[in-house]
């Protein structure tokens, strides 16, 4: 069971499971009624191609479903993150 304080997550780097750096975590969307964690809000890296991802201005959303694990990096599944 991985449990983590959300303040430890701020400004953590997000990486896909094929080793690409996606960006830096800015915030997390939660559903207060169900207690589910819904989305990661990410500031994408300048070199990262955001095509196919959900965007809002310069912020990118990745479903928390895609998160594989969180240790030194936040690792997200390459395919699950694109929806």
């Amino acid at each position: 069971m991985t449990k983590i304080f959300s303040r430890n997550l701020s400004r953590k780097r997000v990486m896909s499971n094929d080793g690409m750096v996606i960006g830096v975590l800015k915030n997390i969307m939660v559903d207060l009624d169900t207690g589910q964690v819904v989305d990661l809000i990410i500031k994408p890296d300048q070199s990262f191609n955001t095509e196919g991802y959900r965007m809002d201005g310069d912020r990118m959303f990745i479903s928390f479903e895609a998160v594989k694990d969180i240790k030194d990096y936040i690792v997200v599944d390459r395919y699950l993150s694109k929806k």
């Binding site: 997390i28 939660v30 479903e65």
Partner: peptide
């Protein structure tokens, strides 16, 4: 002060 997240359960702990 902080919120604990259950990463495996994908929910707020």
């Amino acid at each position: 002060e902080d919120v604990v997240i259950d990463v495996d359960g994908k929910k707020l702990d």
